[in-house]
Amino acid sequence: MSFSATVLNVLIASPSDVPEEREAITESLYEWNALNSQTTGFVLLPVRWESHSAPVMGDRPQGIINNQVVRNCDMLIGAFWTRLGSPTGVEESGTVEEIKWFLKQQKPVMLYYSKKQVDLDLIDTQQLEKLKEFKKSIRDKGIQEQYTNVDELKVKLSRQLTIVLREVSVNTVVDVRAVKAAKSHEDEQIYGNQPALANPNVKAEVKNPIISSDIRLIDYTDKAFVVIGDTSDHAQELKGLGGKWISVRWGGKAWMFSKKRLNEVSELLDLPPQMLSEDEIV
């Protein structure tokens, strides 16, 4: 089914030591689109210098990438591990130059730092020190998160993309307030109105303004369904099954899943694998 949407160009920025993360970020954007584009009205288009730039003479390499790629993008997602990158003649690295341009333009920046193990004999200590200094210099700007593996990166990115896109307003650029709203959630888990995961034994009432507390499965789009009602007892399990905590179009919040997960979600909630229509919400 066709639908109208606003396309946002998302620059994937990183040094050369995180190729797996670049692929994971690209995959995460496509997965987010599959679950959320129709309901949010946004499509996130991954933009990478490998696929969106072409050889041109007359400027330094990073200057060419800036003109062909960077300046046409609406937000930036970056990943780092042990390297900052190579100098461009203007900044310490191309990635740094891109990030600083986005921050100057007040466009959203989301940065993720790997904590996975590394062979100490292979570390360029100068690069690592430069990375630490850069991280410290922008610690109060944009979203900055750590991850231990690619799966954790994808989970955090998916969660924070949902927060960012929930807040954006589209003018000539994406409103930077979206990043500030997402940053305020960095230490929270999106489990309805529950406290952060740091207090997993504390539960709070989940409030949906126009529906009862009974848990029900609602047919939401061609490819997705939502779980409504008081799901506070199952929040961690629902998130583990790939649920996305969204604002539903009739008001309130709900967990959204691909319809491929219907049997798993039904079994978890001890419900029959049957979806109700929106007309049956009371």
Score class of each variant (00 low, 15 high):
residue 150 V to W: 04
residue 103 L to A: 14
residue 51 S to V: 06
residue 270 D to P: 07
residue 75 M to T: 14
residue 259 K to I: 06
residue 183 K to M: 04
residue 256 M to H: 03
residue 13 A to K: 10
residue 92 E to N: 02
residue 134 F to T: 02
residue 59 D to H: 09
residue 34 A to F: 14
residue 186 E to D: 03
residue 177 R to L: 10
residue 172 T to K: 11
residue 235 A to I: 01
residue 53 S to G: 07
residue 221 T to L: 12
residue 248 V to Q: 02
residue 93 S to C: 02
residue 172 T to G: 10
residue 12 I to E: 02
residue 10 V to L: 01
residue 228 I to R: 08
residue 87 P to M: 00
residue 147 Y to G: 11
residue 263 N to H: 00
residue 83 R to T: 06
residue 223 K to V: 14
residue 187 D to E: 12
residue 120 L to E: 02
residue 60 R to C: 11
residue 221 T to N: 12
residue 100 K to R: 03
residue 168 V to Y: 06
residue 219 D to C: 03
residue 56 V to N: 00
residue 86 S to C: 00
residue 257 F to G: 06
residue 263 N to M: 15
residue 153 L to W: 00
residue 202 V to N: 11
residue 104 K to I: 00
residue 268 L to C: 05
residue 57 M to E: 02
residue 136 K to M: 01
residue 166 R to M: 09
residue 77 I to R: 01
residue 17 D to L: 08
residue 21 E to H: 15
residue 182 A to C: 01
residue 188 E to Y: 06
residue 263 N to D: 13
residue 20 E to T: 09
residue 238 L to F: 06
residue 43 V to F: 06
residue 257 F to R: 05
residue 192 G to T: 10
residue 223 K to D: 15
residue 44 L to A: 05
residue 41 G to C: 08
residue 9 N to R: 06
residue 61 P to V: 00
residue 122 L to D: 13
residue 214 D to I: 12
residue 118 V to T: 10
residue 17 D to E: 12
residue 225 F to E: 01
residue 133 E to R: 03
residue 278 E to M: 10
residue 35 L to K: 06
residue 71 R to M: 15
residue 42 F to C: 09
residue 152 E to D: 07
residue 83 R to A: 04
residue 257 F to C: 01
residue 48 R to V: 12
residue 80 F to Y: 07
residue 51 S to E: 05
residue 61 P to L: 02
residue 8 L to W: 11
residue 246 I to R: 05
residue 278 E to C: 13
residue 149 N to W: 00
residue 7 V to G: 11
residue 252 G to H: 02
residue 48 R to E: 15
residue 262 L to H: 06
residue 197 L to N: 14
residue 63 G to D: 15
residue 24 A to N: 08
residue 52 H to W: 03
residue 152 E to C: 09
residue 116 K to G: 09
residue 211 I to A: 13
residue 218 I to V: 15
residue 143 I to D: 04
residue 106 Q to S: 13
residue 58 G to F: 02
residue 68 Q to W: 06
residue 257 F to T: 01
residue 244 K to V: 13
residue 232 S to P: 00
residue 96 V to M: 07
residue 164 V to C: 11
residue 200 P to M: 08
residue 125 T to Y: 02
residue 32 W to V: 04
residue 116 K to F: 05
residue 20 E to M: 00
residue 166 R to H: 08
residue 32 W to M: 12
residue 277 S to W: 10
residue 113 Y to G: 04
residue 176 V to K: 08
residue 258 S to M: 11
residue 43 V to H: 14
residue 14 S to H: 08
residue 6 T to M: 07
residue 255 W to I: 04
residue 31 E to C: 03
residue 239 K to M: 10
residue 219 D to R: 01
residue 139 R to V: 09
residue 7 V to S: 13
residue 276 L to Q: 09
residue 242 G to D: 12
residue 129 E to Y: 03
residue 48 R to I: 13
residue 258 S to H: 08
residue 50 E to D: 13
residue 36 N to I: 11
residue 167 E to P: 07
residue 169 S to M: 04
residue 163 I to N: 13
residue 181 A to Q: 00
residue 185 H to K: 04
